[in-house]
């Protein structure tokens, strides 16, 4: 990609473990997320992908280290992590359905606004919000309630909300799940356009989507990192093939 690999912003995860009463959903993960690339996180169900992101965004407690700009994310509260520039989406799109598309984006953009300014009504639309509306292609729907958007559009709106926050690290949890193939393609192109100097981590099950857009892939299995590399490298990896074939066989035998 265009960004330099002498990156200043990177998220370094060391020995991250999430322990649910003895069950290690994430088990000693080491991972370095560099800026400027679409980093796909794949793995069978229960591999710990979402839990990993939950731990990095303060939703569940993890041990180990996750360093970003001299902060250890594991000791921070969720909203402070977001303020540091680390945003995420959820598997089910969760936009504010009663508010308009514009209001959704404006609320997201407000995180960098002084609190005392929030007693005023929005005057003109902030430039950042207008740009995001264009980037995610929802400018024509700016004044419609977000609740009427199609599934794919809601996901784009979520991405837009991260954009107006200028999130440097974006965790996108199964963003293209349930999308039509056309929507998937548009989403992929959208991500390529916005990645710039950001780190975009995409949790995904769709292998075609991954093959097409991933710059880098990390495969997780039972809470651990199984393999890392480019799409070609990962696909050629014997263990990855076993895990995917293995789980398929297991699933078949277990009915």
């Amino acid at each position: 990609m265009t960004a330099s690999f002498l990156a200043e912003d990177y998220l370094e995860i060391r020995d991250l473990t999430v322990d649910f009463d003895g069950f290690k959903a994430v088990d000693g993960v080491d991972l370095t997320l560099l800026q400027g690339r679409l980093h796909f996180l794949i793995g069978p169900n229960g591999a710990g992908k979402t839990t990993l992101v939950d731990a990095l965004t303060g939703l569940v407690r993890g041990t180990g280290g996750a360093k970003f700009r001299d902060h250890d994310l594991l000791t921070m509260k969720s909203h402070m992590i977001v303020r540091l520039g680390i945003g995420r989406t959820f598997q089910t799109a969760s936009v504010f359905e009663q508010l308009s598309v514009l209001q959704n984006l404006d609320i997201a953009a407000g995180v960098h606004r002084a609190a005392r300014r929030s007693v005023f009504a929005r005057g003109r639309v902030p430039e950042r919000v207008e740009q995001a509306l264009e980037t995610i292609g929802l400018a024509d729907l700016a004044h419609r309630p977000a609740g009427i958007l199609a599934h794919g559009q809601k996901q784009w709106l979520e991405v837009g909300m991260l954009l107006v926050q200028d999130a440097k690290v974006m965790f996108l949890d199964e963003t293209v799940a349930g999308m039509s193939s056309g929507e998937r393609e548009e989403t992929g192109e959208l991500l390529k356009r916005i990645v710039g100097d950001r780190t975009i981590v995409v949790i995904e099950h769709d292998m075609d989507f991954m093959r097409r857009y991933a710059d880098f892939v990390t495969v997780m299995h039972t809470g651990r990192v199984l393999a890392e590399g480019t799409v070609a490298e990962v696909q050629a990896d014997q263990r990855v093939q076993e895990v995917y074939l293995g789980t398929a066989t297991e699933a078949a035998t277990h009915g």
Partner: peptide, 25 residues
């Protein structure tokens, strides 16, 4: 109610967790 705070309050009422993950307490 027409201020940004008013919008934020309604958003918090409707989806508190989402607001948290937009960086607000």
């Amino acid at each position: 109610y027409r201020s940004r705070y008013g919008e934020l309050l309604v958003a918090t009422r409707d989806a508190e967790e989402r607001i948290r993950f937009l960086g607000y307490d």
